[in-house]
């Protein structure tokens, strides 16, 4: 009986002791037990971070080998999680033969929300599959158009003015295919908080509330099923409508043409100061926002 009861008592004592330990409040931030990394608001704080990992989070590895306490009195801090990345070509690297890309690497909308609710594929709808300058005999629904890597197409050869492009003309935005080659299915969302200042027959214009009041234009949505009306104030990440191929009386391929505009101060080619409201390259803002998205970032 005693032999049967003793182990049970031992477990009870251990459990009570552990519970009591669990009731301890975390040490005051001013007296850390060890030089732990500062944690941001809402982040889990490791109690007694230097005691051998007793409070390690479940997904962190526990030490399995003996550690020399003299040589290494502190356990090696866990490596920060490796961010997930995705395959994409460099900014300014256009499809060969489709023009000269814009090479500066400024991220013009650093906190932008990725403008699709799901995955999406930035590439060229003109020089890619199904495009009128794309590979012969391909369909717009070709798998190559719906796979990585991404490809920049700002400044791709066009007749449209675009003062940042090498010859002053070129594609004024980025073509983005939705998750699948289906129109009216995939949600497009607000890149930042702002107001819908215009809705055209195949365009939605969002003006950012905060300076510098970037203007985002979304073209070729399914205009008959938009979620917003002109004048609507929208939160970052709010649904605007679904990607489609609306383009007046002649549909285009299923994609969203995404533009980023702002007032720009710079110098002209002859070195004089100028101001112009024009098109900024959105590619790197898209890359950064998509990277945040696949790493669990939220737009809300």
């Amino acid at each position: 009986m005693i032999r049967r009861t003793l182990p049970l008592l031992a477990v009870l004592v251990l459990t009570l002791g552990v519970t009591a330990c669990g009731d301890k409040k975390p040490a005051a931030p001013s007296t850390p037990a060890s030089p732990a990394q500062p944690a941001g608001p809402g982040e889990p704080v490791a109690e007694n971070a230097g005691d051998g990992g007793s409070e390690q989070l479940p997904d962190e590895p526990l030490p399995t080998d003996p550690v020399d306490p003299v040589a290494s009195p502190q356990p090696t801090p866990p490596s920060p999680p490796v961010p997930i990345d995705f395959a994409h070509n460099e900014a300014g690297s256009l499809i060969p033969g489709s023009g000269s890309g814009y090479l500066d690497r400024t991220v013009w909308s650093p906190q932008m929300c990725f403008p699709f609710e799901e995955t999406a594929y930035a590439n060229s709808q003109v020089h890619g599959p199904g495009g009128y300058k794309g590979p012969a005999g391909t369909s717009q629904c070709n798998a190559a158009a719906y796979s990585l890597p991404w490809r920049d197409n700002f400044c791709e050869t066009r007749g449209y003015a675009s003062p940042l492009c090498a010859n002053g003309k070129g594609h004024q935005g980025q073509d983005i295919r939705p998750a699948t080659c289906k129109k009216g299915v995939h949600w497009v969302v607000a890149a930042e908080a702002g107001t819908i200042t215009d809705i055209g027959s195949y365009s939605v214009t969002l003006t950012g509330s905060a300076a510098p009041h970037r203007v985002y234009r979304y073209l070729h949505l399914q205009m008959s099923t938009l979620s917003v009306a002109e004048g609507a104030n929208v939160a970052r990440g709010a649904r605007l409508g679904r990607a489609s191929n609306d383009f007046g009386s002649t549909p285009t391929t299923i994609h969203m043409h995404f533009e980023l505009r702002a007032g720009v101060a710079g110098v002209s080619t002859d070195g004089k100061p100028v101001m112009v409201h024009t098109f900024l390259p959105p590619y790197l803002s898209l890359v950064e926002s998509y990277r945040r998205k696949i790493n669990g970032g939220s737009c809300s």
Partner: peptide
């Protein structure tokens, strides 16, 4: 539109326009 806010282009990236 009208605004007093602008973004500044890097010096090595001139605008292809006449002043």
């Amino acid at each position: 539109t009208g605004t007093t806010t602008t973004v500044t282009l890097p010096a090595q990236s001139p605008l292809k326009m006449s002043a």
